[in-house]
Design a protein around this nucleic acid. Structure first.
Lengths: 196, 196
DNA sequence: CCAGATAGTTTCGCTTCGATACTATCGCTA
DNA sequence: TAGCGATAGTATCGAAGCGAAACTATCTGG
């Protein structure tokens, strides 16, 4: 068999200079796909929603916030949420301050099911990385997510502890509320990075 | 408003020790989702397929290999491929050596469309990372992908240049063929890591 | 008090996807 | 060399996901 001189789509111009970013991006997509597939219990969208409502702070556990987080429409997000409520994994709560807003909290069943999150396979794999590598991985992914969100004009979704709205250690100027220590690690739709 | 003492799903036990791996995994999924959505031209599955057939070596540009790469069934993979052929982005070629096997190559139109891949947003974001960070990001993702693939008993899909089947610089023992230089960066379904 | 904006939901139709069955070819073996 | 199991690709069907658009309820500003 004769060696190919030219492989379609793989010219010198395209690959020679530095396609490291391209390969890394494709690898990231591939890994995300691998980590999400093959679980019969919930669909990938349902898992993502359940994770989100378990991780988001009390101001962000709404269909609207989830729709922005998941880069989808409010209608689709509402459907996903409804299915989780029907499964007894989320619980509906009306907001006292805003009659339109509805907060969904994970039920004990929902939290129990998260213990069997198929994403655990990826978590285990990441735990095998050296500590410094994992931290740097987080930093790089975080920076990339900020940048992509900026390009897409989407909210950035960081944790309250890293947010520029946080003052005096535990007061959120954005929500005009004092946060509990546990809430500092929660996701917020109104997140704004500190030095930017 | 009173600060919450306890936020459901966010107990000390769950968050205190070290949830860095968990947060990183969720961030990775979120970033992948962000990077894939919002393009009207092709569906995410179609983009992934087009990318795959542009990146895979001549032994791996088949529906079967893509189905394994994409962690789906051969039937679904075949549908996706068919749609790309109908769009004039892939071209069907029968294998001379195996009457069952069919190779799909990207057409010039397919390669041109890849220039407008929505993944470019992520690529640009990754390019803004320091060089060393990008390299380490790739290494970490690669290691994680190997590990998850191992857990899922899925093929690992590395490039020929990193494969243990490669001998004497350009001879693949697995395919019993000499590879062109350009092929060393191509994906292969039969990839096996060197030191594993 | 009214108009526009916002939060959530519902409905509709299209697409995707996995499961299953089917055809054609390969390769081993008796 | 005939036959049988394995493999590659395809077609079909039903369930589910998703986006667009319409609808209700509530809030906010003039």
């Amino acid at each position: 068999m004769v060696a190919l001189r030219y492989l379609p789509g793989m010219t010198k111009e395209r690959d020679a200079p530095d396609n490291a970013a391209e390969h890394t991006a494709e690898l990231l997509i591939h890994l995300a796909r691998l980590a999400q597939t093959g679980d019969g219990r919930l669909t990938p969208a349902q898992w993502t929603a359940l994770r989100f409502f378990a991780r988001a702070n009390r101001f962000s556990r709404t269909p609207s916030a989830f729709s922005e987080f998941h880069a989808t429409t409010r209608g689709t997000a509402s459907q996903t949420v409804k299915s989780l409520v029907a499964l007894g994994l989320l619980e509906r709560h009306r907001s006292e301050s805003d009659g339109r807003s509805i907060r969904y909290d994970p039920t004990p069943e929902g939290r129990a099911l998260l213990e069997r999150d198929p994403l655990t396979a990826l978590v285990r794999a990441l735990e095998r990385l050296p500590d410094g590598d994992l931290r740097m991985l987080w930093r790089s992914l975080s920076a990339a997510a900020q940048e992509v969100a900026r390009q897409r004009e989407a909210p950035q979704f960081g944790t309250c502890g890293d947010c520029s709205h946080l003052a005096a250690g535990d007061y959120c100027r954005c929500a005009a509320a004092t946060l509990a220590i546990e809430e500092l690690g929660a996701l917020c739709v109104d997140f704004a990075p500190r030095s930017g």
